[in-house]
Design a protein around this nucleic acid. Structure first.
Length: 376
RNA sequence: GGAGGGAUAGCGAAGUGGUCAAACGCGGCAGACUGUAAAUCUGUUCCUUCGGGUUCCAUGGUCCGAAUCCAUGUCCCUCCA
């Protein structure tokens, strides 16, 4: 059954919103953070661990699963949920980010985008229709339109053309999707840092009436102030009764700031990638457990954290695991980092209820960055 | 006892007269990472008051100039007895 969003409460001071949806009989609250599992697995973690952490929606990637193992195989397996043994909601990205990360400008055409398989050199061509068909075959719950995630900075003229193309692609994808009962389709707002382009893109998508809306083209190298503007320019024109998903954003402070700008869903590779690279989020900022100063530090990663890693292991032990390149270190840090963001979202929701999000943000910044923090 | 080979920065290993403070790899120390080509990538790694100083087993020598050539010594390895 299609997941249905209900708006429960709005802040009186900013655009923050509290909402919920039910999936397989379980109620999930938004705003929410969604960990990324590109290849139908959140790197190093099992579905059971994800549930224990308190994750709701997780992500998978159309592009990667299309190439390997192929959507037909996932379909034969009984769909993505069965294939990867995750019974919570799954969102699939459309391949739009790979337009940003893998394709060159000349590879982008009106019809679709040419890619070269980095594994074997095969020529690939992904179209909006194909992306939606793959996602339908995968059976994810939240399906993303195929879009162009534009680099930053970009010339206004280019962004203008790109937005129009992304709108045409959204329409083409939607026609193929044909309002399926069991899946939601999201339109993606692009438009770079240009307010009128964001507005135009949002309004045109809303006219097409999607099940939810994403804000894309952020976290591509811009400074935080610019990112926040991009988000405001988009959410301002989106309907209140639909989910809004900010794609690829996961820096802790960005979660708070963008909830205040009306975002419900976030995803980011940071917690898992940083974990594999030895870093941990803490209330007092990000730390690098590989640093020699943790060699004899027998304290928890974060005194305030109740995750499995913090309950049972010390910094010194995790540092040791990282030094030996033992995979358990990356797992423990992945558990911790995702927990940190999941817990942060819970704190955010609590503060929306009491309408104290701004005070919460100010205190968070003070704890995390110390005095004199400036948005960069 | 005899014959040969070798000793280079924390480790492994290039280099065999000037362009060598010495490639490269590992290890060490840091940094980066935002819809994952990422358990990856980048920087740094003799000392320094940034002028320079002291290095390639040790000592002596040849040469304008030596990690590189010669002599002696020390240690290690292989083979033959």
């Amino acid at each position: 059954m299609k997941l249905e969003y209900t708006l429960k409460q709005k802040s009186t001071k900013n655009m923050a919103r509290l909402g919920e949806f039910t999936y397989n009989g379980k109620v999930y609250e938004t705003p929410m953070f969604m960990p990324v599992g590109t290849n139908a697995t959140v790197k190093t973690l099992s579905p059971e661990e994800l549930k224990e952490i308190g994750c709701g929606i997780i992500l998978a990637n159309t592009y990667h699963l299309w190439l390997r193992p192929g959507e037909d195989i996932v379909q034969k397996a009984g769909g993505l949920h069965k294939f990867m043994n995750y019974d919570g909601p799954i969102l699939t990205d459309s391949g739009g980010y790979q337009v940003f990360s893998l394709a060159k400008p000349k590879d982008i055409t009106e019809e679709g985008v040419h890619f070269k398989n980095y594994e074997n050199g095969d020529k690939l061509f992904l179209t909006p229709e194909k992306s939606i068909q793959i996602q339908m075959a995968l059976g994810s719950d939240l399906v993303m339109s195929f879009d162009e995630c534009v680099k930053w900075p970009a010339e206004r003229k280019y962004v203008e053309e790109s937005v129009e193309r992304t709108l045409r692609w959204a329409k083409r994808g939607k026609d193929v999707f044909n309002n399926r009962d069991e899946q939601m389709l999201f339109g993606i707002v692009q438009g770079g840092e240009y307010e009128d382009l964001r507005k135009h893109c949002a309004e045109e998508l809303v006219k097409m009436d999607f099940d939810g809306y994403s804000v894309g083209g952020t976290s591509v190298g811009e400074d935080k102030k610019t990112m926040y503007k991009m988000v405001s320019y988009a959410t301002k024109y989106l309907p209140e009764n639909k989910l809004r998903y900010l794609m690829g954003v996961g820096d802790p402070i960005d979660l708070i700031e963008n909830v205040m700008r009306g975002i419900d869903l976030f995803d980011c590779v940071s917690p898992t990638r940083l974990a594999r690279h030895g870093h941990a989020y803490t209330k007092h900022g990000k730390i690098n457990l590989k640093n020699s100063k943790y060699k004899e530090d027998f304290s928890k990663i974060d005194e305030n954290c109740h995750c499995y890693a913090c309950q049972n292991y010390t910094k010194a032990y995790i540092k040791h695991l990282l030094s030996c390149e033992e995979t358990f270190g990356a797992r423990l840090l992945s558990i911790h980092n995702i927990s940190f963001l999941v817990n942060l979202m819970a704190e955010i929701r609590k503060n929306i209820k009491t309408d104290t999000l701004e005070e919460f943000r100010d205190q968070f910044i003070l704890d995390y960055y110390g005095e004199g923090y400036e948005y960069k």
